[in-house]
Nucleic acid binder design. Structure first.
Length: 303
DNA sequence: TGTTCTACCTGCTTTATCCA
DNA sequence: TGGATAAAGCAGGTAGAACA
C-alpha cells in the first residue's frame, strides 16, 4: 500500500524542460542521463511492488534532515515489526568488487552503493530515534536492471539482484498485516518529510539564452508551428496538439523554470516563440488563470 | 452546394499603470 | 507629467462544422 507516491524530481523536470531549449555540456548530459535512468528504476520498483498484495506501507522519495545533514530515501517500507529501507539502483552493465570498492569494467571506481546505504541507514536510525520510533531497520539495495551484473559479490552484502527479485517479493508476501500503529508511524514519518533539497543541481540558464517555441508533446522537438487555427503541428514527427493544451504546457514549463517571473501575456508569447498570437495567449491565460492587477502591472496567478 | 453559426484571428483604439 | 507598456474592447475577416 503506497502512502506517499513518487513524483518526478524537480531537478529531472528542469532538465527535461531545458533539453529542447539549450545545449547541455557533456557533464550535464551524463548527469541528466543518470538522473533519468535512476528515476526510471525507482518507478519500475514501485510498479513491481504494486503487483500483488504486500503487507507493507510504502513511502517513496523521502527527504529528511538530522543534525544539519540532509539525506534522501528512495523507498521506505513499514511492516508490523520493522522498517525496510530500500535503496534502488538502475545500473546497467558489468561491475566488479575489489576490497569493498566498486568498479566498472573499464576500471573506473564508482561510489559504493553499500556505503551509501550504510550512511542512509545510520541517519535514518538517528532520525527515527529523534521522532520516537523504535523499530529495527532492515536495509537493502535493489538492482532493477536485468542487464546488471556484479562480479566478486559476497553473500553477506545487503543486495537484491534482478534474478532474486521474485524470491525477495515472496519473502514480503508472507508478512503479517500492518496494525493501526504502523499507519500512525508512517504518518509521523511523512510529516517530517522536507519538500526541497538545498542541493538541487541544475545547469545555469537565463530566459534570454534559451530557445523559444512550443515543445512537441510527442517527440520533444521545438519545431512546432500553427497548422490550423487551433492546432499545432510538429515538423519533426508530424504529430498534432490543440493550441490551448500546448500553451498550458508551455506555461507550466515557464513557471517551473522561472518561478520568480510573473506570468504575463507578453512573457508567455515570447516563451512560445510567437508561434501563437498574443491575443490567443491572452484568451488562454484568462480562461485558466486569475488576472491580478490592471494596466501595466497586471499578471496572472494560479486560481 | 450554399447558408448560417461559431470560434478565432488581426488591427486599431482605449484604459490603466509604471517610471524617469 | 508624459512616454512606455500591457491588457481589454471592438470591428471586420476567415475557416471549419452543421444543416437544409
Amino acid at each position: 500500500m503506497f502512502l506517499k507516491q513518487r513524483k518526478i524530481p524537480i531537478e529531472l523536470e528542469v532538465y527535461n524542460y531545458l533539453q529542447a531549449r539549450t545545449d547541455f555540456s557533456e557533464d550535464e548530459n551524463n548527469y541528466y542521463g543518470n538522473l533519468a535512468k535512476g528515476f526510471l528504476g525507482e518507478v519500475q520498483f514501485d510498479e513491481w511492488l504494486q503487483e500483488g498484495s504486500i503487507n507493507l506501507l510504502i513511502l517513496c522519495d523521502l527527504l529528511f534532515e538530522v543534525t544539519h545533514t540532509t539525506f534522501q530515501i528512495d523507498s521506505l517500507g513499514i511492516a508490523h515489526n520493522k522498517i525496510y529501507l530500500f535503496e534502488i539502483k538502475n545500473y546497467e552493465g558489468d561491475f566488479y568488487l575489489e576490497a569493498d570498492r566498486w568498479y566498472t569494467m573499464g576500471h573506473n571506481e564508482i561510489k559504493s552503493p553499500v556505503l551509501q546505504l550504510k550512511r542512509s541507514e545510520s541517519l535514518l536510525r538517528q532520525f527515527l530515534k529523534d521522532i520516537g520510533v523504535m523499530l529495527p531497520i532492515e536495509s537493502c539495495i535493489i538492482f532493477m536492471n536485468p542487464e546488471f551484473h556484479l562480479y566478486n559479490s559476497s553473500r553477506e552484502l545487503p543486495i537484491v539482484f534482478p534474478s532474486q527479485l521474485n524470491r525477495f517479493k515472496n519473502k514480503l508476501h508472507v508478512l503479517p498485516a500492518v496494525p493501526r500503529t504502523s499507519h500512525q508511524i508512517a504518518q509521523k514519518i511523512v510529516s517530517h518529510h522536507m519538500n526541497k533539497s538545498r542541493f538541487t543541481r541544475v545547469p545555469a540558464y537565463q530566459f534570454d539564452q534559451l530557445r523559444k517555441g512550443i515543445v512537441c508533446c510527442n517527440c520533444g522537438s521545438i519545431a512546432t508551428r500553427l497548422v490550423h487555427k487551433n492546432a499545432l503541428g510538429c515538423d519533426d514527427c508530424q504529430s498534432k496538439e490543440e493550441v490551448d493544451a500546448a500553451v498550458l504546457r508551455s506555461v507550466q514549463e515557464f513557471r517551473l523554470l522561472f518561478p520568480e517571473r510573473m506570468i504575463t501575456t507578453t512573457a508567455i508569447y515570447e516563451w512560445c516563440g510567437m508561434v501563437v498570437s498574443r491575443r490567443a495567449i491572452c484568451r488562454i491565460l484568462k480562461h485558466h488563470f486569475l488576472l491580478v492587477g490592471k494596466g501595466k502591472s497586471c499578471h496572472y496567478q494560479v486560481e
